[in-house]
Design a protein around this nucleic acid. Structure first.
Length: 378
DNA sequence: AAATCCGACAACCGCATCGGA
DNA sequence: TTCCGATGCGGTTGTCGGATT
């Protein structure tokens, strides 16, 4: 081995040792306030990009990747925090049905939301529904279930939200209890952060208010919307056996409590609701391809066929169930399914919200099971 | 009151793609 | 054309706090 070769070998050894040491020093896990400040200050001075350079020059003992992720998913000023609004949830469902797991692409249509957030939402909430229905989350059957059960409920929520803002009649139920923070001054991120709110920023720390990380990243200090998406798993004490289920409510075509509340026939049928998707979402100008035509999708929905066949009114009705009474007691006689909110004058508690959601999806699961014979338990 | 379970989400990892040398 | 570093993307994991037992 020549001297130069030896030198080279030594250099390589030293270099690898240095790399090892660097690797040893690299921090992982939750970010500290100091790290966040370092990152933000560096980006304020030098701008985004060049993440590896940033990692080397900023004094952060993090990889460039880690810095980028922290910035894009948490520190960037226009990141929107808080729970996804029904509008956003609906949009996610719609876009996912078209694009699949293209999270970044979907995120582009939800300003302020990150792909990571959307992905987590899908995995923790949407996929759970699929599990409860015992179908694959990417299956057509599940998409139908989403369209027939979940989307209309989100639409109803959206309508209820806007309606409660416009109506203050004494017949109206109190605001949904799943938006407790809506009454807290300063909680701009809920219930409708989609309308322009951005990450609140704590000037004293130069860190996002309710800062995530620092050992307490849970919820980032932001208000939690206890409203589960349809059928959040609960203790299981609500639903014991199918035999114990009260009739799953269904609307007739008579005047409903929703009509009284909202001043007219309320989502007369699924086709009507489906037709409203695009305009509600502002998707009129967005090319969603074949899936854009919700009516067409609904028209050949197996689940819809089944629902239509089992509802006494001959159609799958949506709306607010119950009215001034027990929301669970309204039935369509045939035990058919219903899509809509259980909000009524009975002012359901959050637990009843959960219970009713459970009912919807238990019913959906049963129907899917009847039709498709999904085997196996969870 | 303690133990356990579970949902939520930040963060990490591996792979793919892009762009410049 | 090839190589290589930077960046982006999607899947997965780790950890926390709240709920339940």
């Amino acid at each position: 081995m020549s001297q130069s070769q030896r030198k080279g070998a030594m250099a390589a050894l030293t270099s690898s040792k240095q790399h090892e040491e660097e690797a040893m020093e690299l921090r992982r896990g939750p970010w500290t306030l100091e790290e966040d400040n370092l990152l933000m200050n560096y980006i304020a001075c030098h701008g985004e990009g060049r993440w590896n350079l940033l990692a080397r020059c900023s004094g952060l003992k993090r990889t460039g990747k880690s810095c980028r992720l922290r910035w894009l998913n948490y520190l960037k000023p226009d990141i929107k925090r808080g729970n996804l609004t029904p509008e956003e949830q609906l949009l996610i469902l719609e876009l996912h049905s078209k694009w699949g797991n293209r999270w970044s692409r979907i995120a582009q249509h939800l300003p302020g939301r990150t792909d990571n957030e959307i992905k987590n939402y899908w995995r923790t909430r949407v996929q759970k529904q699929a599990r409860q229905l015992r179908v694959d989350a990417n299956s057509a059957v599940f998409r139908d279930a989403v369209r027939c059960y979940w989307m209309p409920r989100l639409l109803e929520k959206m309508a209820a939200t806007s309606s409660s803002a416009a109506h203050h009649g004494e017949l109206l139920p109190p605001p949904p209890l799943h938006h407790p923070s809506s009454h807290i001054p300063g909680m701009a991120s809920s219930p409708s952060p989609i309308h322009g709110s951005s990450q609140p920023h704590d000037a004293s720390t130069n860190a996002p208010a309710g800062s995530g990380g620092y050992g307490h990243h849970r919820n980032n200090g932001y208000p939690v919307d206890p409203s589960p998406p349809p059928s959040t798993s609960t203790s299981g004490s609500v639903i014991s056996t199918p035999a114990a289920l009260p009739p799953v409510p269904c609307f007739s075509s008579e005047l409903t409590w929703a009509d009284v509340q909202y001043g007219g026939p309320y989502y007369a049928d699924l086709d009507g609701a489906a037709g409203a998707f695009d305009s509600v979402l502002g998707l009129d100008g967005l090319d969603l391809g074949p899936a854009d035509d919700c009516d067409a999708v609904y028209s050949d929905s197996t689940l819809l066929d089944y629902l239509n066949s089992t509802c006494a009114g001959g159609g799958t009705m949506m709306g607010v169930v119950g009215g001034a009474g027990n929301p669970h007691t309204t039935s369509c006689g045939g035990g058919g399914a219903m899509v809509g909110s259980e909000y009524g004058y009975g002012s359901p508690s959050p637990s009843s919200w959960r219970a009713t959601d459970e009912l919807y999806y238990q019913a959906a699961a049963r129907k899917l099971g009847d039709h498709h014979h999904w085997g196996g338990g969870i």
